[in-house]
Design a protein around this nucleic acid. Sequence first.
DNA 1: GATGAATGAGTGTTCATTCAT
DNA 2: AATGAATGAACACTCATTCAT
Lengths: 221, 221, 221, 221
Amino acid sequence: MASPDSGIDQPAQPQPAATRTRRGMRTRDALVAAARRIFERDGYLDARIVDIAAEAKVATGSFYTHFASKEDVFAAVLARLQDEMLHAGVSDGGGDDGDGGRKGLWRGVEEANRAYLESYRRNAGLMAAMEQAAAVDPQFVRVRLERSRVFIDRSAAAIARLQRSGLADPELDPEITARALSAMVSRLAYATFALGESVPFDTLVETVTRLWTNALCMPQD
Amino acid sequence: MASPDSGIDQPAQPQPAATRTRRGMRTRDALVAAARRIFERDGYLDARIVDIAAEAKVATGSFYTHFASKEDVFAAVLARLQDEMLHAGVSDGGGDDGDGGRKGLWRGVEEANRAYLESYRRNAGLMAAMEQAAAVDPQFVRVRLERSRVFIDRSAAAIARLQRSGLADPELDPEITARALSAMVSRLAYATFALGESVPFDTLVETVTRLWTNALCMPQD
Amino acid sequence: MASPDSGIDQPAQPQPAATRTRRGMRTRDALVAAARRIFERDGYLDARIVDIAAEAKVATGSFYTHFASKEDVFAAVLARLQDEMLHAGVSDGGGDDGDGGRKGLWRGVEEANRAYLESYRRNAGLMAAMEQAAAVDPQFVRVRLERSRVFIDRSAAAIARLQRSGLADPELDPEITARALSAMVSRLAYATFALGESVPFDTLVETVTRLWTNALCMPQD
Amino acid sequence: MASPDSGIDQPAQPQPAATRTRRGMRTRDALVAAARRIFERDGYLDARIVDIAAEAKVATGSFYTHFASKEDVFAAVLARLQDEMLHAGVSDGGGDDGDGGRKGLWRGVEEANRAYLESYRRNAGLMAAMEQAAAVDPQFVRVRLERSRVFIDRSAAAIARLQRSGLADPELDPEITARALSAMVSRLAYATFALGESVPFDTLVETVTRLWTNALCMPQD
DNA sequence: GATGAATGAGTGTTCATTCAT
DNA sequence: AATGAATGAACACTCATTCAT
């Protein structure tokens, strides 16, 4: 789960083996880092292999020693991001993080949302690139899907639990509800941080959290 | 608002005018219709001018007699869609359609959502193309924004009204709330109809409606 | 059989339609002619599309208005060659041309061989290119095969006829014999004219003819 | 003539020597063997140095410790083949093997042809690669030429001898005749074993032999 | 001698756009 | 207005060869 560069399913690219030496690893790392910068700067579609290689200060051909294609590096960049986020103890989906009991319910939801939105803000450039990628390449629709799946599943489970405890509207389908609320948060994050529609960060967190708890008819703390 | 092919602001393209004669109009119409088919079939990015011209059974060059570029036709296609939807009396944004008083509140929200989702389903191909376009070209981010602005504004107004009437949670920021709920519905529509995540249509409508009313803490009918 | 540019099966390339105008035809012709020169100069493998386009004095992209690939032009070049040869009344395979009765048998064989060898000498450059092409691309193995099939079939028929008339060794399998003698002549032609092993032309014709008639045990005139 | 891996003139490549140690020899051998497999599998042109090295389980760079280029290994592979054939007592060119006197003349020719064809069949993959190589690189035209020269010379000598003994058509030029008959057999072998045109092996041998003896007007046994 | 990563030149192909007819 | 051929810039990708460990 925290292996070098993983965490999300590596799209089954034949990924040029060649990384047995230290030197190879260094170059590969440089390429991933460079790619990230280029993708943030130019977006997924306008990013050019040549630029990535140049940014990493290696010859164009060396790119292909480590990656099979633009998709391939991009997947690696996303995987590294995922790793970073896990190491930073950040969860993703804007969902309840499952411990509804310890802190107040509302606090729990708020913290999850805040963490998600902060993370999104920090990586806005990459997120924008990812939306582009997903708009163009089904492979990244899948990556995006899997990325949110964890959190949707977790949320759905939490919702079901709350329903059983009489703490959430029993009429709601937990799965679809989880999807809907997740969609709401991530889309708002996209609009705010990637597209730059200006909303004060705290207002955002509060509103989202209130909508989430309201939507489930969770009792106020 | 219902001028030939408008309704949304025509991006200030120098649009090769030249649409005086009846023949010219017919060609233009054929191109727009053809373009729609091609965009639906191939998506925004993979659509090629040559194919659009061929589909319209006109020479490649004739395309440029009527449109300046791919963006230009696409804008025309979207404008025509908008017109069709208005003529069909369809509203868009998943919002309350403003007559909260007459039918039950819940019914009003449900109808609006149902109408939106049905419309989305009918035009799923084009919506997918539009998401692509917006992911690539800021011009279409704007178009998409304006497209939803009407409905967000209307929803925000309705929310504010409900709040004043004591029928909606007064803590919510009407504007952001409207955005959030709109985002929720449209994103869910995208996932369901453009990406094919399967959810029964009626369950979708019901869940969305319930989330919407819950989120606002609207009283049950 | 003598349609514009045909005679051998056009390999089923989607061959870019675009040749409805006179101008288009002229460009296409120029490209075929240019391609022939380039193939003769550089061989099949080293021929570059850019060079062909340049030689034809058109933009690189224009090449693709008329041909899908290098294989495609090369097929067109060979087809045109075939047409030229048919128009020139030249037969190909070094075989008896079927009228064994009128002139002496020996004379018949000799003339066929002479015609074949002269034609080969005239088009040696192209033949060399074709051998290259066939060595690399099965498509041209097939072209070469079909090219000789006509003559092999004709020869096989003639041999069978001679056998029935008691004028040829009845122990020989007509089909394989035809193949063998055809192979002998064409390979000798290749060695002599494409590879430049020097043999006086007339000696070549005579030897080949004598071997042919001897091999079949045809009676001397 | 029987130096390590020779028998045919090693084209004057500066051949990275370096074959002093036992280890070096083993690597070199592994490379030649690997190269043979790769050439058979992929043909001369599509064979890649990297694949050869991989197949030999050595690093890419090690290839260049032993060979200067692809041509260079290929020459070595052919040389080794030649050696093997000599050790196996196999002669090549489809010619009379010089002992016209002892067994019947016909038997002699037949055995030579059979041996040649069997050898060709056994090494069909390599022969196909060699034809490719010769189609592309004059160096291998030369190799091929030298390879057959031995046999053509031997045949020419035999033909001359037969002519002097009154056992062969005196009108034929021995040299060209030898070339022609050799071409016939090798080309037939190529078509049958490398290109897969199906002919029963024994029919092939018989026909070829009969054509050969007929062509020379050798008396039947 | 072996290793395997780095190099970088070389080219086919696409497609939006123009323009002569 | 329509036609459809011509234009040419743009870019990914391969692979033989080198060279620092």
